[in-house]
Amino acid sequence: MTARTAGARRHLWPTASAAGLALALALAGCSGSTSDDDAGSTSTSTSTSGSSSTATAGSGDVVALAEAFSATLDEDQQEALEQEYTFENAANWSNLPNSLLGGGGGPGGGGGSTSSGRVGLQTDSLTDEQWAALDALLDGVTGSAPDEGYDEVVQHLAADDYLADNGGGDAYGRGQFFVAFLGTPSDSGTWGLQFGGHHLAIANTYVDGQLAGATPSFRGIEPFETVEVDGTTVQPEQQEAAAFNALLESLDDDQLATAELSSSYNDLLLGPGEDWAFPETAEGIPGSELTDEQRDLLLAAVQTYVGDIDDENAAAVLATYESQLDDTYVSWAGSTAMTEIGDYVRVDGPQVWIEFSQQNGVVLDGAHPHAVWRDKVTDYAGTTS
Rank of each mutant, 00 (worst) to 15 (best):
P223Q: 09
L248E: 11
W191C: 12
E225A: 14
W191F: 15
T232S: 04
G196Q: 14
G192A: 15
L261V: 01
A214K: 06
F244G: 14
A246Y: 02
I221W: 07
R219C: 08
Y206N: 01
L251S: 08
G183E: 05
E222N: 07
A243N: 01
Q210G: 00
T190I: 13
E237G: 00
D252C: 04
L248Y: 09
F224H: 13
A203Y: 03
P216K: 06
Q194N: 14
S263Y: 10
H199T: 03
D254I: 03
A243G: 05
D254Y: 08
A257D: 14
Y206K: 00
I221V: 15
D252P: 01
D230H: 11
D187S: 06
T205G: 01
E237Q: 02
G209P: 04
D252Q: 10
A201N: 15
S262F: 14
S188T: 14
A243C: 12
A241F: 07
S188N: 06
L193M: 13
T233N: 03
S217W: 04
S263F: 01
P216G: 14
T205V: 15
V229T: 12
A257Y: 07
G231K: 09
A212R: 09
V234A: 03
V207Q: 15
T184D: 08
Q239M: 11
D208R: 02
L251F: 15
T258P: 00
L211V: 07
Q194I: 04
D253K: 10
W191Y: 15
T190F: 08
F218C: 12
Q210H: 01
T190N: 02
N245H: 07
S263T: 10
L211A: 08
L248P: 07
L211D: 06
D230G: 07
V227C: 13
P185N: 11
L211Q: 03
A241C: 03
T233Y: 00
I202V: 11
A242M: 04
F244Q: 08
G192W: 02
P216H: 09
T232M: 08
S264G: 13
S188W: 04
S264D: 14
E237K: 07
L247C: 05
D208F: 04
Q235L: 03
E249C: 08
I202D: 02
G231L: 09
N245Q: 13
Q255A: 15
S186C: 09
L261P: 09
Q210P: 00
S250M: 11
E240Q: 13
D254V: 12
F218V: 12
L211F: 07
S263V: 02
A241W: 05
G192Q: 09
H198F: 13
Y265P: 00
E249T: 10
I202Q: 13
G196R: 04
F195T: 02
H198R: 06
H198D: 06
G196D: 14
S264Y: 12
G231S: 13
L193C: 06
S217P: 01
W191H: 05
F244Y: 15
H199A: 09
G209L: 10
T233F: 05
S217T: 10
